[in-house]
Structure formats: C-alpha cells, structure tokens
Amino acid sequence: MRRIPSILVMLSVLLLAGCATRTRSNELTTTLTSYGSTLRWGDFRSAAQFIDPAIRAAHPTSKLDLKRYQQVRVTEYDDGAGPVPIDDFDVQQTVHISLVNIHTQSERSIVDHQTWHYDQKTKHWWLTSGLPDITQD
C-alpha cells in the first residue's frame, strides 16, 4: 500500500513537468511569431525589445545600425523548419530574410542565426543573439 502514494506523487510530478514544458513551448511559439511579424513589418526598433534586457543594456543598438535598418524593407522572413532545442531552456532558429534597399531597389538575402533563452524567473523567452546583421554579404 505504501507504493500507491509514491506512484501518485511521481505521476503528479511528471504531469506538472509536462504542463510546464507545454506552457514553455506555447510561449516560445507566441514569441517567435510576434518577433517574426515585427521583423516582417520592418520594425527593428520594436524587434530590439525581444532581446534579453541584460544583453540589450550591455550592447544597445547603435544609431548607425538603426539608420541602416531604416534603409531596408523586409520582403520575406522564412523561419524554415522552426526552432531546434539545445536544452530545456534554449533553442536555435535559422531564418532567411530577404531585404530590399529602399534607395537602390536592390534585393538581397541574409541568414539570421537566432538563439533564444527561456528565463525561468520572468517566464519569458528572450533573444540572446541580437538583431539580424543586415550588413552581411
């Protein structure tokens, strides 16, 4: 009879862990969708708010970078296969972004390697790799 309570405790722990994982996964999907939509609209200033606050404070987006972002229009944001888990609290995602220079109308594509981290305290996913580097060739 002593086994039944311990089995119930074990099942409860597994059920709670499953719920936490599902909640984290749903929050990741919501965050990645919001970030992708923000970039699709070319709103790099708002996209910067997805960056981990500690990283954002240590490495603020420069005025030069903001001016560069204003010179392009995002025409495609392809997140392909979606995020790939690194561990329980980190994922990576490779995104192909097509950009048009608003002055020259020339189009080019870049690859953005994103890393996202789940902060257990704030229960929030944060971008740790920074905004896309639109200066890459």
Rank of each mutant, 00 (worst) to 15 (best):
6 S>Q: 11
43 D>C: 01
112 D>R: 01
97 I>C: 02
49 Q>D: 15
36 G>L: 01
31 T>S: 10
75 T>E: 12
76 E>R: 11
118 Y>D: 09
88 D>K: 13
52 D>V: 00
135 T>F: 00
9 V>M: 14
130 G>K: 02
7 I>C: 08
115 T>M: 09
62 S>R: 00
117 H>Y: 08
130 G>F: 00
33 T>G: 07
46 S>C: 03
114 Q>Y: 00
136 Q>M: 14
93 Q>F: 08
52 D>Q: 05
113 H>T: 12
133 D>L: 05
48 A>F: 02
73 R>G: 06
61 T>A: 08
54 A>P: 00
7 I>H: 08
63 K>V: 10
85 P>I: 05
32 L>T: 15
3 R>A: 12
35 Y>W: 15
41 W>S: 12
23 T>I: 09
14 L>R: 02
112 D>I: 06
61 T>W: 00
63 K>Q: 14
48 A>L: 03
112 D>L: 04
53 P>V: 01
113 H>I: 08
7 I>Q: 13
127 L>C: 00
59 H>C: 04
68 R>Q: 15
15 L>Y: 15
16 L>C: 10
132 P>W: 03
42 G>V: 03
22 R>Y: 15
99 L>I: 03
25 S>Y: 07
42 G>H: 00
12 S>D: 08
88 D>F: 10
22 R>D: 13
54 A>Y: 10
44 F>S: 02
1 M>C: 11
123 K>Y: 04
21 T>P: 00
102 I>T: 11
3 R>S: 13
99 L>K: 00
125 W>G: 05
15 L>H: 10
58 A>S: 09
40 R>D: 11
114 Q>C: 03
64 L>I: 09
69 Y>T: 03
45 R>F: 03
131 L>R: 02
42 G>Q: 01
80 G>D: 15
70 Q>T: 09
67 K>T: 14
35 Y>S: 05
40 R>I: 04
121 K>M: 13
104 T>C: 09
7 I>D: 06
8 L>M: 10
26 N>P: 00
114 Q>N: 07
18 G>L: 07
38 T>A: 10
136 Q>D: 11
131 L>N: 04
25 S>T: 13
30 T>E: 15
104 T>N: 12
92 Q>W: 01
42 G>I: 02
122 T>R: 07
111 V>C: 04
99 L>Q: 05
64 L>M: 09
117 H>V: 08
70 Q>L: 08
14 L>P: 11
4 I>R: 08
79 D>R: 06
124 H>G: 06
2 R>H: 13
20 A>Q: 14
98 S>N: 10
41 W>K: 13
21 T>V: 12
128 T>E: 00
2 R>W: 14
105 Q>H: 12
46 S>H: 05
96 H>N: 14
15 L>K: 03
6 S>I: 14
